[in-house]
Every structure is written in structure tokens, then in C-alpha cells.
Design a protein around this nucleic acid. Sequence first.
DNA 1: AATGAATGAGTCTTCATTCAT
DNA 2: TATGAATGAAGACTCATTCAT
Lengths: 223, 223, 223, 223
Amino acid sequence: MAQSDTVTRILDTAEVLFAERGFAETSLRNITSKAKVNLAAVNYHFGSKKALIQAVFSRYLDPFTQRFHAALDELENRYNGQVIPLEELLETMARTVLEVPAERNSLKVFMRLLGLAYSQAQGHLRRHIQSEYGEAFTRFTELVRQATPELPDAERFWRLHFMLGTVIFTLSGLDALRDIAAKDYQEQVTVKDLVRRMRPVVVAAMNAPLPEPAGERHVHAAT
Amino acid sequence: MAQSDTVTRILDTAEVLFAERGFAETSLRNITSKAKVNLAAVNYHFGSKKALIQAVFSRYLDPFTQRFHAALDELENRYNGQVIPLEELLETMARTVLEVPAERNSLKVFMRLLGLAYSQAQGHLRRHIQSEYGEAFTRFTELVRQATPELPDAERFWRLHFMLGTVIFTLSGLDALRDIAAKDYQEQVTVKDLVRRMRPVVVAAMNAPLPEPAGERHVHAAT
Amino acid sequence: MAQSDTVTRILDTAEVLFAERGFAETSLRNITSKAKVNLAAVNYHFGSKKALIQAVFSRYLDPFTQRFHAALDELENRYNGQVIPLEELLETMARTVLEVPAERNSLKVFMRLLGLAYSQAQGHLRRHIQSEYGEAFTRFTELVRQATPELPDAERFWRLHFMLGTVIFTLSGLDALRDIAAKDYQEQVTVKDLVRRMRPVVVAAMNAPLPEPAGERHVHAAT
Amino acid sequence: MAQSDTVTRILDTAEVLFAERGFAETSLRNITSKAKVNLAAVNYHFGSKKALIQAVFSRYLDPFTQRFHAALDELENRYNGQVIPLEELLETMARTVLEVPAERNSLKVFMRLLGLAYSQAQGHLRRHIQSEYGEAFTRFTELVRQATPELPDAERFWRLHFMLGTVIFTLSGLDALRDIAAKDYQEQVTVKDLVRRMRPVVVAAMNAPLPEPAGERHVHAAT
DNA sequence: AATGAATGAGTCTTCATTCAT
DNA sequence: TATGAATGAAGACTCATTCAT
């Protein structure tokens, strides 16, 4: 077996299984037996299961940040100092997210990991991600700020995370939702489909009117 | 030890630990030792770990669905056959969601559990939830359908779940997000704050224009 | 529920389950849940699982020994001091064995239990049986001794157990053997059929010539 | 520790303990601790307790069938088309059964398993054995048929199983019977002893006169 | 007299990891 | 460099039994 063939097979298999079942529910035995690789190979090549998870993650994240920066460069070039419209920014983000995983499952894995990073109490994963792709996110946020000058900073922060929730929730729980949708709408949605559907929603959400100031809510005000 | 004190202690502890770590990462040993209860008690009272997970959920969902149905009854009464505006529906949902766990001061836990139900493998859990509160959700969906007659059914389905993602992600990852926000905006958000902020976003998202049909996407069409 | 109804239900159920699965493989939970009786009832009424096993046996052995003694009394009376022929003794045994469980239509169960008593570890059970019906067996053995004066004692002991093996194995594994036989010989045997077939075999076996003394076996002596 | 030393030690120990106590009453802990082997080793090497039981079984059965076929070959060669006498066939069977287990306990284990295979409700074990050594048994049965041409097929079938009962019951319940015999006859029987004693009994049983036809039984016909 | 609750010891099995080769 | 074997810790679950009521 070629040198790094084993490494690749492990990564490929782990990616699929992680996406299907989650991290805790996927054992190294599952991975190595499906990858037809020695059980000890994971520990030999990666050191530990944790390290394998991060490796799977990095294989997506590294090219993503690289491409994302490149795409933003191109965008800034094109607009040459002018404000980049919000739609362009979101579009660029979406395109890059979709482009990277030649392998299809890694997107789900990536989203799942992102979801974990935010929901898990221990912040170590969050910090790892923030130090890895925080810079790209900060750059993106700043461009969004310029595209939505009327939004208070805090509002923008929350709305971006509202949308992050939409994306992560939808894509990481994709299988579950697909099950439900398929039963009711005979429709086999693809990731691209979903992204297409998300676009107007996200734009509208970001451009929504500001909320009434705190304390002035009237429950039946709509009537 | 009092009658069903044990049951309550198990549920309370399991709830917290599940929310903190997820289902697979929480062992019965973790739960029973923290709850100061015999290891076999879980199996005695609930039958299995699976059943315990479902019981944790039911303790939320049972009162929730009950209240939710009551609230929708009241709403239908008030509107007396007329179409109930989307804002009212969302408002009612939000209020009920907030009321129920308020008693236990554990909205965050509930949301995290819901998130897990969607993202973690546990197919049994999703099925359990669907059969338990599916009816309430269906009723709600139908009212939303009447309030948004112009939306295709599939579109509405997905948008509702997009928004579900927003809510679950934001409220379940509240601590993490609060950390980040506090550092940057000196602002200590409350759950009510967030719900206030979400309202216009959710309404705008639901009312967003329809996406371009599949296959016709032009990347730079927005310009 | 009537007083000893519970006891009867436990015994009935235990009997069936023990015969189906063996003692160790049948839990008190199995028994009590199938008998629709409280889990603690076995320990309450019988004291322990061991005692339950013995009780199941006694319910057969008590009437059996009683009848067997009566039948032997009648036989001795009839032969009035003369030697009772072996065929009569075996016949009497067979008849009594068939009569007792006939009331409960559970000869098979009884045989399976007897088989278990010999083959399973349960030393306590063997000892219990020996002290319970050992006397009847001793009496029977002595009559057989008189009917077969030429047989050394040890030889008679073993041959009786050889035949016990035949009977227990055949009747306790009846279903399995019936399956095989039915497939090959289109014949649906009844218990009475089998007993009829066993009679000449058992007689011949008991009357077989003595074995060559130990150490003098010649493998090809038959030629 | 040497290569498959562990496997052998597990098999050896399991064999002894299974024979002493039965399968359900022997825990993997019992085995591994007595074999001075890690608790997980059984599952590592055999996969499950069930598989271990079958492995113990196969270690006896595989060489047995092989030798048995060889012995029958030799016999057929020697008799060169002539009918092989029943005594020779039984003798060959007995010899092969005794030869195989260099380790002494496996015979008892083997017999116990055979007993289980017939008496247990679930036929899976019976089917396993039938597919494993059914061919050898069929071959043997056919030779017995030629040696006892006067016997109706059904009669032969049942008599063979009567004798199987004798052998299995005696050898699998050996410890129990030995206990009883030792108390009464100061005699420490060996397996070889028993087989010597069985020989004339089995021959006589197979050659017993045919039973009276069904329906003509007269209980006191012997007088 | 009878039972629901509880328990401690035990079951088999699976885990990620290590080690000798 | 790579792997089959082995391992200690932990997993969920079941057991017969006890106890307070």
C-alpha cells in the first residue's frame, strides 16, 4: 500500500462516517474496518481520534480560507474601493463554501463541526476554529459592515449569527430534514438547492427593519 | 427517599448533562453518580438510555404542546375564521416557547436538546418527537400556510426550518455567543432581547421574495 | 387476586420457561412478567430462585412418588413374595410416568426438567431430588435387582441410567426429533408410540450380556 | 506472550469450565481470570461468547468428522463391499469419539453441546451441527442400515436416537452420575469404562425384537 | 399479605490506545 | 514503517434480592 494512501483512505472514510453518525457514534473500528486499514493506523498516523477529527476538519478548512481570501481579493479588486453590495458578499461566501468539497460529505461534516464548536460548553474547539479562520471571518464581517451602514454593529453581529444558525442547522442536520421533506414533498433536495433557497431569505433577513427598542413591545400590536 | 424523587433527580441531571455534552458523550454512570442515585435506577425507572432521552424530552414537550394548542385555540377564537397574520402566529409560538421552560429556567437546555435531536444520529429521537408533537407542528404549519398563501409548500417548509435553525442555534449556543458579543459590544443580552431582535428578522425571512428557479442562477445577477 | 393464585401462576409459568430455556437462562423477571405477578412475589412466596426450582419439581415428584409406591404395593401384593419380572417393573414405571403429568399434559416439560437436573450444574437440585424421591428409586432398584439377579450391582446401576438417558433424551427433545423424523418418514409419532417402541429396546438393553472385563477389549474381536 | 497462546489458553479454560458448570453459568470473567488473560481477549479473538462456544465445539468436531470419515473408509476397504457388522460400526464410532479429545474435558463439553442442540427450543444450534457433521452421520446411518436389514427404517431411526440419548445423557451428565455411583459403589468410573459397559447394551438394544404393532399392547401380557 | 422502589454485584461487549515485533 | 495482539477502562444493561410501606 502506498505511503499516504492509508492516510487518505482514513480521512475519506472518517469524513463520511462522521457526517453520517456524528463523532462520538463513530468508532475508530468503524473507520478502519470500512477503510480496510489496520486498526492501529489511526493512532499511528494521527495520534488520536481528536487529532483525526481536526485533520478531517483542516482538510476542508485550509483550502476554504485560502480560496475565500482570494475571492474577497477579487471582489475588492473588481469594486475598486466602492462598497461591495451585500448580495455579492453573501454570494461569494456561498460559492466558496460549496466549491471546496470536491468530496460531497465534507460540507456536512464541516457544518456539524461548526455547530459543535458553538454549542459545546468547552470552548477549546471554538478557539481552535477562531484562530484558524477567525481572520477570514473578521475580514468578511468588515465588508458586510460597509455594505450595511445603517445597521447598528450589535444588530449586524446578531443577524449574521442568526443566519449562521440557519445555515449550520440546515446543512448539519441535512439528513434529518431531508427525511422529513422527502416524506411530505417527494422532493430530493440537494445542497445547491438549499443554498439557492437560502439566498433571498438571508438577504431579506439582513435587511429587515430594526426591531422596536427594548421595553416597547406590544404583543398584539399587529392588529 | 421520597417516592419519585429518584425519577426527578435523574431527569434533572440527565437534562443538564445531555445539554452540556450531547447524548453519546453522557454515560449513565455520569448521570447516576452526579444525581447520587443507583446506577441501575435509570434502567429500573426508564428501561433504557434511549427511553431516558425521550423522557427528558417529553417533560418539555408535553406541557409545551398542551399550552401551544391552547394558545392557538385562543388565537383562532379571536380571529374567528379570519386569517391570522404571520406576526401573531410567530409571536404566539415565541411566547409559548418562552413560557414553558421559564418555569425551569432552562430554555437553553431545551434548545440544545432540540438541536441535538436534529443533528445527532438518534433517529429514534426524531421519530419520537415527530409522533409526540408533530400534530401541534402540523397545526401551526397549516395556520402559517393560510397566512402566507403565496408561498409554495416546499418553500414554506424550508423557511420554517431555516428559522428554526436561527432560533435553536442562537438560543442553544447562547453562552458562546454572549461571550463573543460581550467582548465586542459591552452588551449583556437577555433571552428576551434576542427574541425582540429575532422578530423582524424572522418575519422578513418568511416574506422574502421567492428564489430564482433552479438552474437559472447567475452568479452576478444581483448587480 | 386469590391467595395462592399467585403461587400457582408462578409455578405454571416457571415450569414452561425452565423447560424452554433452562434454569440460568430464565430470569425471575421473565417469570413474573409473563405470569403477570409482582417481581418480588417469587422471593416472597418461595424465598429464592433455587427454592422455586425445587418447588417446580416437587409439584411433579410428590404425586409421582405417591402413585409409584402405590403401584409397587399393588405389584408386590399380586406377586405375593415371588420375583416380579423385569417387564412388569418397567411397565409399571412407564405407566406411572405417563399418568402423572398426563393431568397437566406436560410430560415433555417434566422430562426436560429431569434432564436439566442431571446435566446442569445445579448440584442443589440433584440433592433435593435424591432426598425427595431417592427412596422410591431405591425401592424400584431393589426390585429390579431381584428381577435381574445375574447382573452385578454396578452394572445394573449404569444400565438403569443408560435407559434413563434414552427416555429423558427422547421425550425431552421430542419436538426436535419429531421434526427430523417427520421429514424423513412422514410419520407423526405420539408419546405412546415412542413408549411402545422403547419397551423391547429397554428390556433387551437390561438383559444384554455382560461386558468384557476392563482391559481385555480387542477392537476387532468381532471378526 | 506467544502468538496464539492466548487463544489456546482461552479455549482450554473455557472447555473445562463449560463442562463443569454449563454455558450460562460460566462467565467470560470466570474464563479469562482463570486463564490469566485479559477480559477483552475473548471478544477480541472470538467476537462473542456464542462464537467462543462454537469454537470450543469446532475444535472437537472438526478433527472428529475427519477421523470418522477416515475410519469408515478403512472399514469399507477392509470389508470390501461386504456388509460391515453392527458391532464394528459401533466400535468404530466409539473409538473415534474417544480418540479425538487428547484434552479430556472436551468429550463432556461435546456431549453437553449435543444435548443442548437437541433439547433447546431454538433450533439454530441444531442446524449448525447438522450442517457441520450431518454428512458424517448420514454416512454412518446408511452403513447401519445395511448392517440391520431386518429393521424398518423408522425403527432404526428411533433406536439410533434412543442410543444417542443413552450416550449423551450419560457422558454429559457424567459428573452427576459419577457422584451418585461413587457413593454407592466405591468405584471411580472412567469414560472408557462407561463405553465398555455401553457396548453390549447398545448392540442388544439395536437388535431387540420389534415392538408389538400399535394398538395391541396388553399391559399384563408378560404373565 | 403483598408490592413498588431500590440496590450492589454481575453480565457481555466496545472503546481508544499501546506495545512488541 | 506498519501491524496483529493485547489491554484497562468504560459502556449499557440485567440479575436476584432486600426493604419500607
